[in-house]
C-alpha cells in the first residue's frame, strides 16, 4: 500500500528560507514524522526537526501541517489523500532556528515567572490529604506535554509580537489556574494572573483548546474559570472596600 507523496517542507534559518518540494515514499500506518525521518535518511540528511518519544507524550515535534499547528508524530498520513501536497512549516509564533526547529525560550521565560506551588506552612511530607475529586481539576491541566502548540496558535502573540512581554499565553495562564485550583496551594494568584500574566488579553476564541493534542479544555476549564475568579474578586464591593481600607490593592 505504498505510494509517493508530494511534500513541501520549509528549509532555512533565521536569515532566509524557502519551501522545498520532495517526492517521498509513504507506507501504510505512517505518520508525518515517519516521512520527515525518511527524508532525512534518503534525501535531506541535514533536515532539522525536533522529536523524542514519537508517541505524543513529550511534545517535541510541534510544527504546522498545511497551516494547522500539530504534532508531527500524531498526524497520520491516512488523513490526507495520496494526491494532496503536504506542506510542513515551523511554528510561526517563535523565531526559527533552522528548518522545522524554532526557538521556544519564550515559554521557559514565562514558566519562570509563575510563582511555584506554595504548600501550607508546617504541613509535612507524607501528611498531605486530598480528595480525588478535588485534585482532578488540576490533574487535567497537568496532562499538558508542553508542546507549545497553544502558545503558537494564540492570536494574542501569533499576530502581535509586541504583546509577548505582557502575555504569558494559554499554557502558563493554565499553569496559574492549576495552582489556584490545587487543594493545598495557599498563594494568592488571581491578581497576578490579570496584572502580570495578561489574562485579560484572552478573548476566549478557544483556538488553544482546538489545537491541544491532549484534548485539555484549556479555555472552558482553566481560562474562563480563572477570569471568573478574578472578576468576582475585582468587582466584589466588600473586597474592593477591604482593599481600600487595608491598602492592599495598590495598583487597582
Amino acid at each position: 500500500m505504498s505510494y509517493k507523496a508530494n511534500f513541501r517542507v520549509w528549509r532555512g534559518d533565521v536569515d532566509s528560507g524557502e519551501l522545498r518540494d520532495y517526492t517521498v515514499e509513504v507506507n501504510e500506518g505512517e505518520v508525518v514524522l515517519d516521512i520527515i525521518h525518511r527524508l532525512q535518511a534518503t534525501q535531506a540528511p541535514d533536515l532539522a526537526v525536533r522529536w523524542n518519544c514519537k508517541a505524543g507524550k513529550c511534545g517535541s515535534c510541534s510544527a504546522e501541517i498545511n497551516g494547522r499547528p500539530r504534532l508531527l508524530c500524531m498526524t497520520r498520513m491516512s488523513t490526507f489523500s495520496a494526491e494532496e501536497t503536504i506542506t510542513v512549516t515551523p511554528m510561526r509564533t517563535f523565531p526559527v532556528v533552522r528548518d522545522l526547529v524554532t526557538d521556544v525560550s519564550f515559554n521557559y521565560t514565562k514558566a519562570r515567572q509563575v510563582p511555584s506551588f506554595t504548600p501550607p506552612e508546617g504541613l509535612k511530607a507524607g501528611e498531605y490529604r486530598m480528595e480525588q475529586v478535588d485534585v482532578e481539576r488540576s490533574q487535567e491541566f497537568r496532562k499538558c506535554i508542553e508542546c507549545f502548540l497553544c502558545q503558537n496558535t494564540c492570536h494574542v502573540i501569533r499576530d502581535f509580537e509586541d504583546n509577548k512581554p505582557a502575555f504569558s499565553g494559554p499554557r502558563y495562564l493554565m499553569r496559574i489556574a492549576e495552582l489556584d485550583m490545587h487543594p493545598l496551594d495557599v498563594a494568592d494568584r488571581q491578581k497576578a494572573a490579570q496584572e502580570e500574566h495578561g489574562l485579560g488579553y484572552c478573548n476566549i476564541t478557544k483556538c488553544c483548546t482546538d489545537v491541544c493534542p491532549e484534548h485539555i479544555k484549556i479555555t472552558d476549564n482553566a481560562l474562563i474559570p480563572m477570569k471568573e475568579r478574578v472578576a468576582d474578586r475585582k468587582y466584589d464591593p466588600l473586597v474592593w472596600l477591604g482593599d481600600k481600607i487595608l491598602r492592599r490593592g495598590k495598583t487597582q
Binding site: 511555584s116 506551588f117 498531605y128 480528595e131 480525588q132 490533574q139 497537568r142 495552582l179
Partner: peptide, 9 residues
C-alpha cells in the same frame, strides 16, 4: 507532593 505533584488518591 511537597513540590506540587498530584497523584491519584
Amino acid at each position: 507532593e511537597t513540590w506540587g505533584a498530584l497523584f491519584d488518591r
